[in-house]
Design a protein around this nucleic acid. Structure first.
Lengths: 210, 210
DNA sequence: GTCTATATAATGATAGAC
DNA sequence: GTCTATCATTATATAGAC
């Protein structure tokens, strides 16, 4: 992303400025702030993108296209608990993308659904490989499990970020993410290695009920 | 909550109307809509509460006070996966509270932190009892585990609700919550009974690193 | 206490000059 | 393509009559 400024058309510069502004301050940010960042007039923004929503669509398309081009190992990382966002957060150059993605998922906007589906698709592949390698236990419904794990981990991440952001607003999301992983590494590993319930028959009786 | 309308002072009627409006449409809703629902003039709202933020504080205090008065079994329910929100959603008379709480947690507003802490406190007690009863495995750090589990389940719930709400806006949150639990009952039980990783030594090696 | 009317501020969008 | 200026809408908050 983000080539040299001089290389880009004005429209692309506005779009990149919008990605940055939306990522840092959420989608409530005004057209004027975006225009200021792109060093153009407010009127020019709508001249190119029609409306604020059109601008956001352009941002979504751009970000989603970029994410789709990344390889699987980037998206799922080595760490099931952290998932894709953790991996992206560690790469300096992806910081603006990371922020935009978090905002987009929080907002539940148009990008959120396709992005979530994309993450789940990757997770299915990734867990299949890990099952074949004997690292992860097999599941009776691998697709549902992948979806479930992503819902848990992504949802927890977003909730944690929002609460942390409120508690100390100057802390950036990427540091908060590192804190999240170190704070909960122990319970996460306990859960992943030994589960939670003592009686494994709970699962069997559920299966028989069906 | 919600006594007979005639019993309430005008200020309390406005506050209850605000809880309903905020719960149904989020905190972006205007003072005018709240005033209309309470059947008073817009000006009167700020006369009583000073500002919109003051009104929201009054709503927060009211809802939090109500939640604090509930008993533990209501808050944690019988189902670890669903947690408190699931239990509340099933009780018809709590529907407005439920909606308000979800909005508040989504928003990350002032209520969210104290509410989350309260839920975690309850979860600590609840899991302690379950460990003593031999239902749940012990943890090396019970407080961190309770916090972790609540972060996972609450975060997943909020994320799911937001995505569902977008996909079909006419579906209400309580039905969505039932869908969530039936859709993911299997992977959740798999996770709770058998964990995810085949090699239990992963935990031990993590502990030795410290 | 309660109302109507208005001040004030910010936003997205547009018109028209260059 | 790009700018300045402005419109129209919407929101919160307030002033003053009753």
């Amino acid at each position: 992303m983000f080539n040299d400024r001089a290389d880009l058309s004005t429209a692309a510069r506005i779009r990149d400025a919008a990605v940055l502004e939306f990522g840092q301050h959420g989608f409530g940010v005004g057209v004027r702030a975006i225009a200021a960042r792109a060093e153009v007039s407010p009127g020019l923004v709508n001249h190119h993108f029609g409306s604020k929503e059109g601008l956001r669509r352009a941002c979504d398309d751009h970000v989603l296209g970029f994410v789709r081009d990344q390889r699987v190992e980037v998206l799922t990382g080595g760490d099931m608990a952290g998932g894709m966002l953790a991996a992206m957060a560690e790469m300096e150059e992806y910081a603006p993308l990371f922020a935009y993605l978090v905002r987009s998922l929080e907002d539940g906007g148009p990008l959120a659904d396709s992005l979530f589906d994309h993450i789940v698709d990757d997770a299915v592949t990734y867990t299949e490989e890990a099952v074949a390698a004997g690292i992860i236990k097999p599941s009776r419904d691998p697709a549902a499990r992948a979806r479930y794990l992503m819902l848990l981990n992504l949802g927890a991440t977003l909730l944690y970020l929002r609460m942390r952001r409120r508690r100390d607003p100057e802390l950036d999301d990427r540091q908060a993410l590192r804190d999240l992983m170190s704070e909960f590494a122990l319970p996460a590993l306990e859960m992943y290695t030994q589960g939670l319930l003592t009686d494994p028959a709970v699962l069997d009786s559920f299966l028989q009920e069906k």
